[in-house]
Structure formats: C-alpha cells, structure tokens
Design a binder for these strands. Sequence first.
DNA 1: ATAAACCTTGGAGTCGACTCCAAGGCAAGC
DNA 2: GCTTGCCTTGGAGTCGACTCCAAGGTTTAT
Lengths: 125, 125
Amino acid sequence: MKIKEVSTKFDIPADTLRYWEREGAIPPVSRDDAGYRDYDDEDLDWIVFAKCMREAGVSIEYLIEYITLFKQGDVTLQARKDLLREQLGTIAQRLHEIQHTYDLIADKVDNYEKRVEGYHGKLSR
Amino acid sequence: MKIKEVSTKFDIPADTLRYWEREGAIPPVSRDDAGYRDYDDEDLDWIVFAKCMREAGVSIEYLIEYITLFKQGDVTLQARKDLLREQLGTIAQRLHEIQHTYDLIADKVDNYEKRVEGYHGKLSR
DNA sequence: ATAAACCTTGGAGTCGACTCCAAGGCAAGC
DNA sequence: GCTTGCCTTGGAGTCGACTCCAAGGTTTAT
C-alpha cells in the first residue's frame, strides 16, 4: 500500500505519515524496489496505534519512547507496560476533564434554549 | 482577588491569564485603583469556563468568537447557542475517540501483563 | 525611606506538531 | 520518448498557544 492510499484511508496527510516515521514515532516502513514506502499490515497497525494515541493527546515524544523500547525486544516488556499504564492514567484524567466540560456545556445550551425562547416571546409581544 | 492568587487557585500561569485576556478569550478583568487586575466572581467564572474549554481542546479562537458575541448582548443569544451546540458535537466526538484509545490501551496493558508473566516464567526456569 | 515582592505593558522567544517546498527519481499511458 | 503523476529527501516555514523578558509603577514590612 503506497503512502497516498494510506493517507486517504486513514485521513492523515502524507507529510504527517513521513514526519511520524522520521521522528521515530512509528517504526521504519517497508520499502519497494524503487525506495517507495509500501506499507504492510504491520506498518498499518502502527499507523492506527499512532493515530489513536495522537487523537488522545499523547505526545510524539511518548510514542518515540515507546518505539525505542519496542525495538529493544522482550527485555523491555515491563518498561513498555509501565509506560502504557502511565499513559492510561493520563488519558483517564483527560477523559474526565472533557466529560466534565461536556456536561457543563450541555447545561449551558439548555439554559440558552430557554433564554432564546423567552427572548423571542418578548419580541413577538 | 489578585492575579497571583487566581493563578495559584486554578493552577494557571499568570502569563496565561494575561494572554487569554489580551486575546479576548475572556472579557476584560476588573481593575483596582493602581490598574492591577482584581478578579471578581464573574471574572472567575469566565476563567473557569475558559479553563474547561481549553482542557477539552477548544481553541482560543472559538473562545474569542463566543466572547465577541457575548459582548453584543441578547441579540446574539441564538448565535451563541448554536456555537456552543457545535462545540458540544466536537467535544462528544473527541470524547469517543479518547474513550476508544483508552479501551485499546487498557487491552494492550492486559496483554503485556500476561506476556511479562510468561517472560519471567521462562527466565526462572 | 528603602528593600522586597508584587503588579503593569509591549514585544520577543520558544515549543510541538505539523506543513510546505525544491530538486530529483520512477512508472504508466499515449 | 514524453508527459503526467506519483514518489523520495532535506530543510525551511507556519501556526497556535503559550512563556519569558525589560522597564517601570505600587504596596508592604521593617
């Protein structure tokens, strides 16, 4: 799968895919004879992983750290687990914050609902 | 309440509080005789609102838009409601993305849990 | 009345994460 | 074999959101 297809499929700019790889936020991608990126299933899994993490607000730096450990093999299993667990905590917290904001705004919208009605009532009288 | 107290109370750098105000992401803050910011309850409410929104990933630009409408009074009630509702949608989406990532990582951690056990088992044999 | 600890503004600097070239190689259709 | 369209790299540029001065005013404690 060439870079443009991947870009379209996951809705991530090709430049960003290259950037992630350059930085080491995903492992090096397979290449064809011409030196073109040719993503296999494993590469795609990493893209999905990186995309999810980025959406959840995990920094590139964290991803790099994770990949660095990954490249060192099974010796780093524990370390990777710890890293992920730490992220899990951060994400849980973020989740609660956003949940909280969601409730707050939902409430505000409700209030506006009423006020807008009242306002129109006044105008039409 | 002076800026440093507010900064400590809400754990937001004073520079950021000034920045938000400069940009118009919150309305102008009350001042004392010396020209020092002296946050009243209403000002604090705006800080809380801005903080929540920022944590939920809402851009400064959106906040400015909201404040701009707010300053124009009741004529913009409907517009403000629409704006908030739009944000609500975006935040809901973000919430689901993060939830999804949370589940994914929780799963991954579980797997690591097992693999780490196996790894240790091998070593001690 | 002087030092320490606040505060002000305007403007410059930083940082993370892209995003956009330029210069050149490869590939498919006409 | 030439055009069109994709691909490569390295490096520069952008953008949002802070973050950090410098120069100067105020307040408080000693």
